[in-house]
Design a protein around this nucleic acid. Structure first.
Lengths: 151, 151
DNA sequence: TTTTAAATGATAACAATTATAAATAATAGA
DNA sequence: TCTATTATTTATAATTGTTATCATTTAAAA
């Protein structure tokens, strides 16, 4: 935890941004909820627990900043809200998601499944890939079992 | 064009929805702008040209309905707006997108590049894939040339 | 210190979307 | 046909997520 904060601090400094107490509190919340896909509002409420004086605007600004620095990825699953997802340590690309259409759960795939596809896109379409967003919609393991049970 | 409208009409009827004049006008706009990625507002303005009395709410409802029936796909490129993209004829899955980070252009890949990846996901993660969203962010062919020129 | 710049908090403004209610059109039953 | 019912639409109000503004605070530089 402390190491990752230290690292993020350096990333900020390298672009001459500071790790203010508010920013640190926000980053800590993100680290503590790495598996979740929090909206700005979610983050705000959680940060408020440890830094009650923080303003919503600051949370938005911080998340925006972290997005620019590729520390978090902003993602949208089709409900009206943006969600913020911490990049895995050392990850070059954004990880993938499995969204269950039955229960709404979101699972992550950290492994990069797109290397082959990306080289095809670069070669056949002449498009220089910098990053990707890949989400599968379907039925998660758990809901498949439920379906079998109830049928 | 007429054939595709006829087909969509049948799809609607099969779920006991009607193809009202407003809905038809909306579908026509989508068909005429198949290559674009229109927002609800864009669609509204275009529909208004041929059916000036239509209301914005109706456009939203129609797009929502068409989404449910998988006639269009709702997509979000990270700016605050949802965009609506007509499915290609007979396409099982949603097509892919190449978004240029320089000029903002959006190119489509109709070919399905994910069949292998999807069978891996089904096998290794036990997730039953129904559909996908794949977007690459990078530099399009045109902007790559521009960069070379200006350097 | 004094000065300057960066960051914050509160809140207003904004834009996209959804909900509401009255009016209209279509449909089914008597 | 007339009547009752339902679906759909329009106009608009309300809501929601996000961004902009501005006065204040904090930190850094001179």
């Amino acid at each position: 935890m402390e190491q990752r904060i230290e690292k993020i601090k350096k990333q900020l400094h390298s672009q001459s941004y500071k790790l203010t107490p508010q920013r640190e509190a926000t980053v800590r919340v993100l680290l503590e909820h790495e598996e979740d896909h929090l909206s700005a509002e979610d983050v705000y409420l959680l940060v408020k627990e440890k830094a009650p004086e923080i303003g919503l605007a600051t949370v938005y600004r911080t998340l925006e900043l972290l997005s620019e620095l590729k520390i978090v990825d902003k993602i949208n699953f089709g409900d009206g809200v943006s969600r913020y997802d911490l990049r895995k340590e050392g990850a070059e690309h954004f990880h993938h998601h499995l969204v269950c259409v039955e229960c709404g759960s979101v699972e992550e795939i950290v492994e990069d499944l797109l290397t082959d596809v990306e080289s095809r896109v670069e070669k056949d379409w002449g498009f220089q890939v910098k990053d990707h967003r890949l989400t599968f919609h379907g039925v998660c393991k758990k809901c498949q079992v439920e379906t079998v049970k109830s049928s």
